[in-house]
Nucleic acid binder design. Structure first.
Lengths: 255, 255
DNA sequence: CGCCAAATTGACCGAGCTCAAAACGAGTGG
DNA sequence: CCACTCGTTTTGAGCTCGGTCAATTTGGCG
């Protein structure tokens, strides 16, 4: 929305050295010569359309992926057919590591919006990492960060009230958006209420009610997928399980 | 129980090449020369007592650990002070990888029973892996398997009924025990009901009731921490969300 | 303007949490 | 061998949070 979305071939060709995610993505902390070697194996793909899949469950591990912009969800199909959301992926966050254990993907990566994706053939990545200690360490760290996000997700699901989960979700999303230089206080959610519900282990109605509650309490302002964090401090309090103080500034009594 | 538990110094000194976990642990799939190089950096520690900690939250990443026998839990402290159980670790399953992302441990590893532990200094491990492609791949795979277990845990917690979680837990534990050559049908649980509850995101009373229910239905026999799987097929059905058939063989009507 | 998907709101109900008490088992000491 | 204690586990009873079903409302788009 903010920037023109014309099809910019030049931008498409830009390498890691000019990518705004350089400090967050695999290239972080390796020197110029090493960067060149990494760049040689990275493929940049043309835009991925909303709903398109990078890989499917059962696919052999060919490559790992990083979005330059846009957003993805990784999902697994419950044997009941219901889809469960494993993670959301923002730009700079690696996708495809779920195949490390068995060599085949356990989930599918679906684009939530149109997106630009870098693809790194896995064999080449491992081979290059073998030669470059810096990249090797970087790779382990990126994997670790992905595990950390999974852990945060887990913390969100265990023994937490619905409202707590929702606050935690908004809080965490804001923090990650700020990391990639976007506002964490004025967010246009790339995912539906149903996606959020399936991520948080709640019914979609509960998510909707939670949003409404936060709005009534003056913590956020919601308009469809646009969410503004009005009171980050209070949001953080709620995320950590504190009940809202009995009386609040915004008009809740007046319905 | 089966083998004498005298303090066996010789066994303590035995290297990876004679370890029964060789096929599951890091050494799997690397050749003899490589194995020797790995062995050089592995430290074997004397027994760890029940309740002892391998590392604490916030500790810098020094080493990763593998139990040769015994069992561990990794826990994180809820800010509320309540401990949340992140994972249980059986022999051959790596511990300490939670520090990969930030360089510091996010959780603590606590021994559930007396245990024998191998300690692998992390820096050395990475350095050796740098030189040995086989070990490098092995390391990534072991990390991946650990992520897979986390994923299974997550699947257990999201949108699953209490009874389903419990069945899934027993089923998964049995499968992992069978992998290390122990019976999956006759298990002495190393953890308390409370530990299980904190792992499954349930109240301990709910876990206890779930066990009783499974016993009443003739699926398992429970006696304290001893659990026998009487009907593995039915257990698997329950684990996958199927309700028990209306009429069961065992006497439930007769209380 | 009308259509369809997404989101909100309402009403009801049941799984599972909480509080409470009893039963059990493993030590410990007389 | 029994009595006593302490921790773990089981069982019971009631209530609440959040799921389910259903009816609107909203918003995007042809």
């Amino acid at each position: 929305m903010a920037s023109p979305t014309v099809f910019d071939l030049a931008q498409l060709r830009r390498g890691c050295s000019q990518c705004s995610l350089q400090q967050l993505c695999l290239p972080a902390g390796i020197d110029a010569a090493e960067l060149a070697q990494l760049e040689r194996i990275v493929k940049r793909r043309r835009p991925v359309a909303r709903g398109e899949r990078l890989f499917r469950a059962g696919d052999a591990l060919q490559a790992v992926y990083v979005a330059r912009d846009g957003a993805f969800k990784t999902i697994t199909g419950n044997e009941a057919g219901e889809e469960q959301i494993v993670a959301f992926h923002l730009p700079g966050e690696l996708m495809g590591l779920d195949a490390l254990g068995s060599g085949a993907h356990r989930c599918e990566a679906v684009a939530l919006t149109t997106a630009q994706v870098c693809e790194v053939p896995f064999e080449s990545l491992v081979a290059v990492a073998q030669q470059l200690p810096g990249l090797q360490q970087r790779l382990l760290r990126v994997i670790g960060q992905s595990v950390d996000r999974d852990r945060d997700h887990l913390d969100m699901l265990v023994r937490r009230q619905a409202n707590e989960r929702i606050a935690l979700f908004l809080h965490g999303l804001g923090a990650r958006l700020r990391l990639i230089g976007r506002s964490g206080e004025d967010v246009t959610l790339p995912m539906s209420r149903e996606d959020i519900a399936r991520f948080l282990g709640l019914a979609l109605e509960t998510v909707s009610r939670g949003f409404t509650r936060l709005q009534d309490d003056g913590v956020i302002a919601v308009s469809g997928r646009r969410v503004q964090i009005l009171d980050p401090v209070e949001l953080e309090r709620l995320a950590h399980g504190q009940e809202p103080p009995p009386q609040k500034q915004a008009g809740r009594a007046a319905r």
